[in-house]
């Protein structure tokens, strides 16, 4: 089975995020990492491959330096990486991004396309739906357990009150939650072998996507204004002298939160 995993390089979780007021885009020059739930998707893909054989291909849109982050997923056990890196794609919104990823995925013709549920920077949690729609493939999202027999895929989808169990014929798109697995550490041999795995960098032209259909030109949304998040309300620091649990309980009861 051929599995494509869509992954994204995001600013490292520990780094302070900064938005460039000029371009209204996130400053991506600092420490970067692979998006956390994308690692769950990579892990799931590798487990499927280990159990049933096949190939795991990473597909990503981002700047050239995103290859550094893709290498971590290669070190975990993915087989190769395809990065779409093109100046004209910078600033792509959901519409433009889904168009580019769909074009890259069409080229791969994978049986199963996996996504992490949401990226930690954009936090949209809809890209997989847009891509599935463009590919005209069934979609299961928020998946906490996944099985496949090679012709269908079945996902346990987390809901507020329990699980939905949903099956779809392959090829399909699945977005996984962080509850699905515990991503492995890349092994030393994996890290040392990652560099020599195939890593392809494609332009929009390679995918046959018109530059006018990508980046800001191809986007259907415009960022009008940006503001800092509202200041946190009154906070209370409780030092534990043995009575912290009671104090927290009192606090919650007082505000009728319990």
């Amino acid at each position: 089975m051929k599995i494509a995993v869509c992954v994204k390089q995001v600013p490292d979780a520990t780094a302070a995020k900064r938005i460039d007021p000029e371009t209204k885009r996130l400053d991506r020059s600092g420490e970067a990492a692979l998006n956390a739930t994308d690692l769950n998707a990579v892990e799931e893909a590798i487990r499927l491959k280990e159990a049933q054989g096949g190939e795991v291909v990473l597909v990503s849109l981002g700047p050239e330096r995103a290859l550094e982050s893709l290498r971590k997923a290669l070190a975990m056990g993915a087989d190769r990486a395809v990065l779409v890196a093109d100046e004209a794609a910078a600033g792509s919104d959901l519409v433009a991004t889904s168009r580019i990823l769909a074009a890259a995925l069409e080229r791969e013709q994978a049986d199963l396309v996996l996504f992490g549920q949401a990226s930690s920077d954009g936090d949209g949690a809809v890209l997989w739906a847009a891509v599935a729609d463009r590919l005209r493939r069934p979609l299961i999202s928020q998946v906490a357990a996944l099985t496949t027999d090679g012709s269908t895929v079945t996902g346990k989808r987390q809901t507020e009150h329990g699980y939905d169990t949903i099956s779809a014929p392959l090829p399909a798109v699945v977005a996984v939650s962080d509850a699905i697995n515990e991503p492995r550490y890349p092994s030393l041999k994996g890290i040392m072998g990652a560099k020599s795995k195939p890593q392809e960098t494609l332009s929009l032209a390679d995918l046959g996507v018109d530059a006018a259909e990508a980046g800001e030109a191809g986007s259907r949304t415009t960022v009008l204004a940006l503001g800092p998040p509202p200041a946190r309300g009154e906070s209370l620091k409780i030092e534990d002298d043995g009575s912290a649990a009671q104090k927290i309980l009192d606090y919650l009861v007082e505000r009728r939160l319990l």
Binding site: R71, K72, A75, Y185, P186, I191, A194, K195
Partner: peptide
């Protein structure tokens, strides 16, 4: 180099 940093980061995470 990248590989050395990757090894370092993995052990640090562990």
């Amino acid at each position: 180099d990248d590989e050395e940093r990757a090894i370092r980061d993995t052990v640090r995470q562990f």
